[in-house]
Design a protein around this nucleic acid. Structure first.
Length: 412
DNA sequence: AACCATCTCAACCGCACCGGT
DNA sequence: TACCGGTGCGGTTGAGATGGT
């Protein structure tokens, strides 16, 4: 592409990908892995730059993409994550199995923003619009960094500094640093109590830390409640009703209890997709919960997700696909009908892939799942993900946590 | 049917970070 | 330490789809 060093040397194609190009790329990656992206186009016989190939693969050709309409729960989760993470779409996408950052970003810009405004919520600040309008004009840079967590509740200094472990919310340290040094650069002086993982938007005057009292963005709590398999009406109503997010009467001890629990259990097991945890099984991606009329894959009980067990070890850089067979270390079940998944078209005629290749692709699917999670969360959490007993423990603990949270909210 | 407005989403662009040298 | 290539991320663009008149 213009501007990319890898594109200077020769005239490269731009724009939409043709089915032939897709086919070449899929075949190549399925067979060899991507390795160094810059070398992929040459090896695959494509007149594209590596960056374009990578993008095409990640956003469209990857077999583990869910595609299709977002469920209401996915949207809710995105909203809540956005309240915590801001426009860090890749981080948000990490919590939504099968969804890409690009997809989520598009959804946010095209749909969710509008919905939030209709509900009287400012999508940038997650505050009520009436509040925002009444607010003093925020600094210029806040618009770009958009989402401060508007609804805040006080938390104690010790809570904020001790219980909110940085790595829990943002396991990718480099990304954290990157965020704070570039687009999400926060006003340094405000980084007082909460770790930047939670207050990376404090440049939008969110974290009004004063003396010994910081402010905790409660949407995180609401997310955590959902995360914590709390399908109770109370929790859901709390999470969906910003008016309840910030209640000045909210007992800080309750929050302390809740947050403390979050830090030790929920957040630390963030590698496990929230609803996978809720489902109580060891699936990684089969978590999109039900009641989604627009998606046929949503039921927690259906088998459309990827059920995976793996004991394999691998390097997170390159996928050893050629060595994979379905009956080896990785077991993958692909089920569910194809929606408008282009990948399925490839696999079912439109794209001439052999049965063996399909198997390989499915293995690849599982491996990629593992790889991506591994890359994101690191070895420790990866191990957790693969260990069902750990999840059971986590679930048990989560139940206790929720009790604590519930007790706290009874005082609201 | 034609036109226009709006929406969706794949892809591009530019920037920043990282690791190697 | 500086440079460079590779990579990843978030913002933006624009073509095509869709809906309204």
């Amino acid at each position: 592409m213009g501007g990319h060093s890898c594109c200077y040397k020769q005239k490269l194609r731009k724009g939409l990908w043709s089915p032939e190009e897709d086919e070449k790329l899929v075949k190549h990656i399925t067979k060899y892995g991507h390795g160094c992206w810059s070398s992929v186009p040459k090896q695959a016989g494509l007149q594209r730059c590596g960056k374009s190939c990578r993008l095409r693969w990640i956003n469209y050709l990857r077999p583990d993409l869910k595609r299709g309409t977002f469920s209401q729960q996915e949207e809710d989760l995105i909203i809540e994550l956005h309240a915590v993470l801001g426009n860090r779409w890749s981080k948000i996408a990490a919590h939504l199995s099968g969804r890409t950052d690009n997809e989520i970003k598009n959804l946010w810009n095209s749909c969710i923003k509008k919905k939030l405004r209709q509900r009287g919520i400012d999508p940038n600040t997650h505050k009520l619009l009436s509040e925002v309008e009444g607010d003093v004009k925020v600094p210029n840079n806040s618009e770009k960094n958009s989402s401060s967590s508007g609804h805040q509740i006080p938390v104690t200094h010790s809570l904020a500094t001790q219980e909110l472990t940085p790595s829990l919310m943002r396991p990718d340290k480099s990304a954290d640093e990157k965020s704070t040094t570039s687009k999400y650069s926060a006003t340094p002086t405000k980084k007082l109590f909460l770790d930047q993982s939670l207050t990376n938007h404090e440049n939008t005057s969110t974290c009004h830390a004063t003396n010994s009292t910081g402010y905790f963005p409660l949407p995180l709590l609401s997310y955590a409640l959902d995360y914590n398999q709390t399908t109770s009406a109370a929790a859901l109503s709390i999470s969906s009703n910003p008016l309840l997010w910030l209640n000045p009467e909210l007992n800080s001890n309750a929050i302390s209890t809740a947050i403390s629990s979050l830090s030790s259990t929920i957040l630390s097991s963030s590698v496990v997709s929230p609803l996978s945890c809720a489902a109580g099984d060891n699936s990684i991606s089969n978590w999109t919960a039900g009641n989604d009329s627009s998606s046929h894959r949503s039921s927690a009980n259906d088998s459309s997700g990827v059920m995976m067990q793996s004991s394999c070890s691998f390097d997170s850089g390159n996928f050893p696909w050629p060595d994979l067979t379905p009956d080896k270390d990785v077991q993958v079940q692909l089920g569910g009908e194809a929606e408008d998944i282009k990948w399925s078209e490839y696999l079912h005629g439109a794209f001439p892939v052999s049965a063996a290749m399909q198997n390989q692709s499915q293995s690849l699917y599982g491996e990629m799942k593992i790889g991506s999670q591994f890359a994101i969360n690191g070895l420790g959490t990866w191990h957790q993900t693969q260990q069902l007993p750990h999840q059971i423990q986590a679930t048990d603990i989560n139940a206790k946590d929720f009790q604590s949270v519930s007790v706290g909210f009874q005082q609201i």
